[in-house]
């Protein structure tokens, strides 16, 4: 993973142009729409082959406790996946027996607070954003997942592809029975 830009922000990073910021903002909105529509084929086409998709589990710790809960990849995580692993999870939906997705869950992904920066790689950009992912299913099942993301997006011939994502969900106890959602 040393070949790609790091998620950690350097002391000084150059903000992207209005044009580039607009292009990546539109990319994030399009991604959210793909996820809302459960159009996972289109979504996974937006994922780079060397993707790392990470959502760590966050414990409640005192401020003085320096345990690295975010970048230590050996700890438990909701997602700590490569692209093949994401595809494996998604293949569950093609079996016809994913009972808890039928009737379908209704999703809305809201993406805000987008900032775009250049990285040490000319074709890769660090994108900060916040998410609000809302789910509702059956009669009155609902939950709200809120947090921050840091991404690395790579410019390719066919638009931008997601190379790295770190999504920090703000829950300690996840207030839902499952996480049948991508963020």
């Amino acid at each position: 993973m040393t070949d790609t830009a790091t998620l950690e922000r350097p002391a000084v990073a150059a903000a992207a142009s209005l044009e580039l910021t607009h292009a990546l903002t539109q990319t994030l909105y399009r991604e959210a729409r793909m996820l809302d529509d459960e159009n996972y084929k289109a979504w996974t086409e937006m994922l780079a082959e060397d993707l790392h998709y990470h959502m760590p589990g966050i414990e409640t710790r005192y401020r003085r406790d320096k345990t690295d809960q975010v970048t230590d990849l050996t700890r438990m995580a909701y997602y700590n996946d490569s692209k093949p692993e994401i595809l494996k999870r998604l293949s569950r939906l093609d079996t016809g027996t994913a009972w808890s997705e039928d009737p379908a869950t209704r999703y809305t992904h809201i993406v805000t607070n987008i900032e775009v920066e250049h990285t040490e790689k000319t074709d890769e950009f660090r994108v900060f954003s916040n998410f609000y992912a809302y789910r509702n299913r059956n009669e009155r099942d609902e939950d709200s997942l809120i947090g921050n993301r840091i991404d690395i997006w790579r410019q390719t011939g066919e638009g931008f592809q997601l190379v790295k994502r770190r999504a920090i969900l703000k829950h300690n106890v996840m207030l839902s029975k499952n996480l049948n959602i991508y963020i």
Binding site: A77, S100, S176, N178, L179, N180, I181
Partner: peptide, 25 residues
């Protein structure tokens, strides 16, 4: 191997795991 086990557990029996998701409901 510990890492493989951890990833495997979270992909099957984490809240987003392919097995866990169908139990709760």
């Amino acid at each position: 191997i510990k890492d493989e086990v951890t990833k495997g557990v979270m992909q099957t029996f984490g809240p987003g795991g392919t097995f866990e998701m169908d139990d709760g409901e």
